[in-house]
Design a protein around this nucleic acid. Structure first.
Lengths: 239, 239
DNA sequence: CGAAAGTTTGAATGTGCTCAACAGCTGTGG
DNA sequence: CCACAGCTGTTGAGCACATTCAAACTTTCG
């Protein structure tokens, strides 16, 4: 059930059997969410962290105009709000974009684990720093990349993150977001996303259709989007 | 010397005398940097964290075109690269924008402190999550706000962060960045920053001149920029 | 004092937005 | 089974915010 999460952790660090047992023990209950259902509201006290098992979630902030900016997408195996352990109240909302199932880990369990296993504390600290690295890369997209590069980069990022947990290969991945939601990620309008997807299709780089991102030319896409996966820290580290 | 750092920590958490002593003990040496001097290069192994004592630093990533996107600014009291403790290699550069002085804390000291004081581990984990919250707010600016709001929001953020360590009040703060550097933060060109600063001046909200941001109407500025300081977690927390 | 860096302004251009209409698909109810 | 509503996706025309290019001006600093 939390296999994808362990897979994600073990892609970067060694996790002992004892540590694994502690993580498994920490999961209290599971829940399901429908598309567009709010999972964690901003500004409210939180009491646990949400481990995404299936589906796509998003962190977002909204503006007075009614628009919203999605600041990160979450894929299975991710904690959507591990930072709620230290922040207690979030500065953003967390919502399910597609149908999702999650496991909940109470903050006390996180505290117990991190105090008993300082190594796991660093592993999870690392995971929140990885979120920050993803935020930084999105800042680059939002600030300096063209619409074509933004979408290309987003698909490259998702391909890499999903491949890490076995949910994508070089030919693509399932991806049920609407063009409006993609627009909310990349600071564009849905109309412009539509035109840009058309261009990506015409250039024979990616095709997005029927809830699937079909990558025709991964290398070409990465080149066009100036994608360098280093910020995702995909390689195994010291231990 | 690290008073501003302690002040920043204590604004949110209680730090015991013992913890303070451990932090003071961890600082190994101090260094100075000139404007535009690279402090931490991306992709290279790091061995310590950089505590900013004076001056303004920036995290940035650069693009093939030669442009760069600044992803966060650092003010005195901040660790510019606390996340290097868990990431080891950074996905971005850290540079001095103005003349800076720093204190260096070796990673072994960070490790020792966080293992000896789990509470401090959470305090520093919190600090890196604060960086992520700032990244998120910049994503909102870069993705959805107008040029006027972006600059206004940036000045509000800096005012709040600098005020926390006593380096700003409601009338403004010293701020030696060029218009090009401001542009690199907010995804604009220096020409457009110039025109936008003119508009902010004409609206009698802020005036930027001679290395100082003079705020004429802080409330008006915050309203215009849709600034809500909640994401900076300025209030004291549980302990 | 002179060179270099930074700021200011104008004119033309362009990427992406707004507004609008329409097509396609799914689900619902008569 | 069809009519219709609602959501998503597609396309066109005109517009706007921000960019590019260029020149002049001001400040900083060696």
């Amino acid at each position: 059930m939390i296999e994808l999460h362990l897979r994600k952790l073990r892609a970067r660090d060694d996790i002992s059997a004892e540590e694994e047992a502690a993580i498994r023990d920490a999961v209290s209950c599971t829940r399901s969410y429908r598309p567009d259902e709010l999972v964690v509201p901003a500004r409210q006290q939180t009491s646990g962290c949400t481990l995404l098992l299936a589906g796509i979630m998003a962190r977002y902030k909204d503006l007075r105009s009614g628009e919203r900016q999605i600041t990160e997408l979450h894929v299975p195996g991710d904690f959507a709000d591990l930072h709620s352990f230290t922040l207690k109240k979030l500065d953003h909302h967390v919502t399910a974009l597609t149908a999702c199932t999650v496991a909940v880990v109470p903050h006390e369990k996180v505290q117990a684990i991190t105090e008993r296993f300082p190594h796991l504390a660093r592993v999870y600290w690392f995971q929140t720093n990885l979120d920050a690295a993803i935020h930084r890369e999105w800042e680059v997209s939002l600030g300096r990349r063209t619409a074509l590069q933004r979408l290309g980069h987003l698909f490259c990022e998702l391909q890499a993150r999903l491949a890490l947990v076995g949910l994508a290969d070089a030919t693509g991945f399932d991806f049920g977001l609407t063009q409006s939601e993609i627009a909310e990620c990349m600071g564009l309008t849905s109309v412009h996303v539509n035109r840009t997807l058309k261009e990506l299709r015409e250039r024979e780089l990616v095709e997005v259709r029927n809830g699937r991102v079909s990558i025709q030319d991964l290398q070409g896409l990465q080149r066009a989007a100036e994608f360098d996966p280093a910020y995702l820290y995909l390689e195994k580290r010291g231990g």
